[in-house]
Every structure is written in structure tokens, then in C-alpha cells.
Nucleic acid binder design. Structure first.
Lengths: 330, 330
DNA sequence: TTGTAGGCGTTATCAG
DNA sequence: CTGATAACGCCTACAA
């Protein structure tokens, strides 16, 4: 379809090598021929075949972004960040959804390896990390967003989930709440575990015992938050405040509270985690813990690139500071 | 890193060709050697190099998804659909954001062509279609989501925007509104133009003249809707209802109305377009026009695949039916 | 400054 | 059923 180097060489009356050199701006090529070649290339509509190039250079300028669910508003923002940074550097990014399944995660990783991506950015879908370690051992580079893996071929970019959750719950404690529920996300996911830990620590440091009745697991989606909260609210001693493992869940919580005819924040206060775009809607005004999603995406790509260039192990672990955003639900 | 066919051939004591055949399940290869090869391949951890394969087969099992902004909740759902369908068929998808810029769209298309994608799914960022036609003429296959292009190498999947907008506005008319404002999206985008056309038609068919003062353009985002609506509401004869070109814009409209101290829907009714996930939140309950986003994504991929297989031109144009979802803002 | 030739890892076309 | 061998389009020593 598009002409090849061979075609150009023929028309220009020079060798393959010369054309290739001219095209790649090598210094050892005379002005005259370079211009002739470049001109001809444009005229003939030459488009280098990145596949062929990749085969020889072993660099595809392609990375894989694998995350649980692009439909969760947290992820589009980080995706945006990595995509933007990537395309600025001439990289393209494969998008893969795992639907929180570690099997699908592994399948995607596998497929991407075959496609010879230059690296991975992954938001782990579970605590099942063996397959991730395997690809790192195989020499692949990766940066992990939320989810720590210690391996010289990887860097982790995480928000301090424990600290964030602690801030959230302490905020509620300071408001006078003593009966605070926890509506979690998908089980066995680091994000969820850490946020639970923060919740726990906050309560403990205030000398308040855990009430297991008040602790439930959802699915990181609205539906889960809704269903689980209904149960919580029908307890004998219902919580006066709820900390949700993420904003989507918190939206479900809000809905449940309203559907039970209770007022927010008077009857029950709620705080979420993530600060997704919609948390700030005047109709919602969700109190939450913010993390710099877009920047995390950009940073992730930069780190990946950096690992590939100077292949000394980059700083292994970057911990971002969470920020409490107080709005109207608490 | 990973062994190659050559390596396996050496260890198995057979030729490249035989190994390749065994690996690809060709019939002409004896049970014995097939098993030997397969076993060895597994043992040695063989991973086919898709890049090399692509070079010879001219099929990368890779497609490009280029859309304006993954951060707009309309798009993650369609992205999800295409990604899911794609991975079921062993395809990977490149994600590209154009930020509504036709130049960036062109750049991305260019880059993806070099990467030899098997096809494109694009949600056009403007009415600037020449570069799209160019790639089609160059032999690329593409399916367009919202945005019609007539070309044998493409199929368009669109919702009937005109009809949808008409439904929205007629709904408002039936509710008794006569002063209906339009808050648009990015200019020169088919989606926006068509929705405006529907607005116009509805009014005309009810014998109501257009008031240009009531017609404003936004940016398909909340911010735009907010700013523009503030102006609208300060008009001498402010509209009693507003049709927004998409839901994100509608959210901005809602906010503006509230900030001006007016009640919804009593003082001003509003209806949007898209039915994004958040339109159904109890706090929002936005009346809107729904489109089957996820299914559009899946369908888009299926059509693309189909065009590639049987390369007779597929049905060129698929028009989906919009659906009015009445909630509490009208 | 330019040309020759070999190789990147696969698949595919021939003969045997 | 199996083996050479030639592509695919590009890059890069090495030699001239």
C-alpha cells in the first residue's frame, strides 16, 4: 500500500542503506542525497512500518495499560494522564480491562507481552501477584498504580491509603461520631485492605473497639454500596457515619441513606475516597479523600520511560499524599 | 528472552517449518512430532512474537480506538464495549484521546497506521473529515461512532441525534414550555449540529420561532454548561426550560440554575442527552435521551471485524433508536 | 559518503 | 508428513 524503503531507493537511485539513513537523520549522509530522499519520501507518501522497525530495534514504542474497569471514573483520569504523556513521547497505549479478575489480568498481560510492549502500567485487580512477578522476572518493566510490588524492574506509585482512610475516619471522629461503619470494595485488593486498615487504626487510636457488624464488603461500585448500606441501616444500633472504600461506593451509600428516609449528614454522615469528578457536583458535595489521578497517570508513564532509558532501577516506590476534601456529607 | 522457533527446532531435532506448523495446529504434522513440539514449547516457555508474525501475515490483531475524551463518561462505556468484544477475539486496542482537536486526531491516526493496526474505531472530534477520508482511501477500514461518513471502507454507527433531540424538546413542549433554550456542545461536531437540528425541528413543528438569544454553545463539559446557562438565566425573558446537548453540559445547567436560586423543574426544566451513569443518581435524576453506549462499542468492533473478514462492504450505516428517559428534572 | 549483506522471528511456498 | 528457503520491511555492521 504505502511504498517501502526499497521503492524509494529504486526511484532515488541509491542504496537501501542510504535511504534508511536519510530517513532516520543519520549524520553520515550528504545534504544532497538526504534532501532528495526526503523529498521523494514525502512525494510518494512513505510511511515507515513500525512493526518491521520494532522487529529489529526491539522497541515498539507501545505500552500496555491494564486496569480493573475504565467505567469507574477514577480510571479514565489516570488513563488520560498516561495517554497524554505517552503520545507526547511518541508512544501508543493499549487499554485493557480486567473487570477485577486476576485471570483476565494475566491473559491481558500475556497478550501484551506477545505484542512486545515496551512496558506496563497496571492497577492490580487483586492481591494475586504471582503473575505480575513472573513478567517482571521475565525482564518486563512495569509501574504499578496503587499496589506495591518490590522488584527492581518495577516502580510503584501509590497514594498512602492507610493514611487517607485514617484522615477520613478521624474527621468523622472529630465531628463526634462514635458508631462508624465501613463499606468496603472488592476483597483481596490492596487498595481495599489498606483503607480498611486505616479505618481500623483511626478507631483504635481513639480507643474505640471494632464492631464487626458495622463492617461490610461491597464491590467498588454503586450497586454494592447501595445494597450493603441498606443492611447496615437496619441494624439495632445503626452507624451514625459511614466511611466508604471509594466514591462510587459512597454514592451508593448516599442513595441507601436517602431511600431509608434518613438525612445527610444529620442522621448519617458519609465520606468517600478518590474525589472523582462527580463528587463535587452541587447535588452531591461528597466529602472525600482526593488523589491526583491525572498526575499519577503522567508520572507513571514518565517513570516507565525512565526505567527503559537508563536501566538502573528507578526509585522503587513513590508515595503520594492524600488530601481530605470536606464537603457537605459530613 | 523467550525462546524462538529456532531454539525449539534445535532441541526437537526438526525443522523450523515443522515447529511452526505444530504450533499453529496445521493438520499436516504427525501426532508424535506435534506433541513433542508442543511439550517442548511449554517447557521452554515459548511465547510467539506477535510483531514478527504481524510482519508476515500483515495482520496485527490490533485496532485503534480514537475518541475525543475518555474523561467524558459517555466514552468509557463504549470503550468498555469495544475492548471487551476485541479481547474476546484476541484483539488489543490502542486508546487515543484527541481532546476534540482534529489535528491531534490526525496525528493519532497517522501513528496508528504506522503501527499497522487492522482497523479503526473513531468518534470524530470535528466535522473536519478530510483526513478520515484519506485513510479510508488508503485502504484502512474504520467504523465511526456518531458521525456519518459514506465510504465503502467504513460503516457508521450512530444514534438518531435529530430524532433524539426532537423527542427531548417535544417532551418539554408537551409539558407546556414555550421558551426553551439550547445549550450546545463543541461547534462543528456532527453530534452537536444534529442535536441542534432536532431542537429546531421540534420548535418549528409546533409553530414556534427560534430565539437566537436562547441558543448558546458550550464545550460538551460541565464548565461550559455552567457558564453559558448563567447568561441565559439573566435574559429579560429567561427560558423556562433548557435542552442541553449532552449530559455533562446538563449537569452544568443544573448547577447554574441552582446557583441562581431557581427551582428545578418548577422554574426551569432541563433535559440532557446520553444518559450517562450519573444521570440516574437519586441526587440528579436527570431527564435525558439514552443511547446504548456499551452495545455500540461491541457492535462497532464486530462490524470492524466483519469488514476485515469478508471484505465486501458491510452495511454502511447503522442507525440506533434514541430513547427518552423521563426523570425529575422536567 | 555510500553500498553490500545479514539478520530480527514468523509464516508460507515449494519440493521431496 | 517434512525440510529447505524465500519472503515481510527495516536497521546496521562492515567494507569500499
Amino acid at each position: 500500500m504505502s511504498p517501502t524503503i526499497k521503492d524509494i531507493a529504486l526511484r532515488a537511485g541509491v542504496s537501501y542503506a542510504t535511504v534508511s539513513r536519510a530517513l532516520n537523520n543519520h549524520p553520515e549522509v550528504s545534504k544532497a542525497t538526504r534532501e532528495k530522499v526526503l523529498h521523494l519520501a514525502k512525494e510518494m507518501g512513505y510511511r515507515p512500518n513500525a512493526i518491521a522497525r520494532g522487529l529489529v530495534t526491539k522497541e515498539t514504542r507501545t505500552i500496555g495499560l491494564v486496569l480493573p474497569d475504565i467505567t469507574n471514573p477514577f480510571f479514565p483520569e489516570v488513563a488520560r494522564g498516561v495517554e497524554e504523556a505517552a503520545s507526547e513521547s511518541g508512544y501508543s497505549v493499549f487499554l485493557c480491562n480486567t473487570d477485577w479478575s486476576s485471570e483476565r489480568e494475566e491473559e491481558h498481560l500475556h497478550a501484551l507481552m506477545q505484542k512486545q510492549v515496551d512496558g506496563f502500567i497496571v492497577a492490580p485487580s487483586s492481591d494475586q501477584l504471582t503473575h505480575l512477578l513472573k513478567i517482571l522476572d521475565a525482564g518486563c518493566k512495569a509501574v504499578f498504580i496503587s499496589g506495591v510490588i518490590s522488584h527492581p524492574n518495577s516502580v510503584s506509585i501509590i497514594i498512602d491509603n492507610v493514611r487517607g482512610a485514617q484522615m477520613a475516619v478521624e474527621h468523622l471522629l472529630k465531628k463526634g461520631h462514635r458508631q462508624i461503619g465501613f463499606v468496603g470494595g472488592v476483597q483481596d485488593v490492596a487498595t481495599n485492605n489498606e483503607r480498611f486498615l486505616g479505618y481500623r487504626k483511626a478507631l483504635e487510636s481513639w480507643g474505640i473497639g471494632l464492631e464487626w457488624d458495622c463492617i461490610r464488603k461491597g464491590d467498588f461500585r454503586r450497586e454494592g454500596g447501595l445494597a450493603v448500606t441498606k443492611e447496615l441501616l437496619r441494624l439495632e444500633e445503626r452507624p451514625t457515619a459511614i466511611f466508604a472504600a471509594n466514591d462510587l461506593t459512597a454514592l451508593g451509600v448516599l442513595q441507601a441513606v436517602k431511600e431509608e428516609g434518613l438525612a445527610i449528614p444529620q442522621d448519617v454522615a458519609v465520606v468517600g475516597f478518590d474525589d472523582i469528578q462527580f463528587a463535587s457536583l452541587p447535588e452531591i458535595e461528597l466529602t472525600t479523600i482526593a488523589q491526583p489521578k491525572f498526575q499519577m497517570g503522567r508520572l507513571a508513564f514518565q517513570k516507565l520511560l525512565q526505567m527503559n532509558k537508563e536501566d538502573g532501577p528507578a526509585k522503587e516506590r513513590i508515595i503520594l499524599r492524600p488530601k481530605l476534601v470536606v464537603r457537605k456529607t459530613s
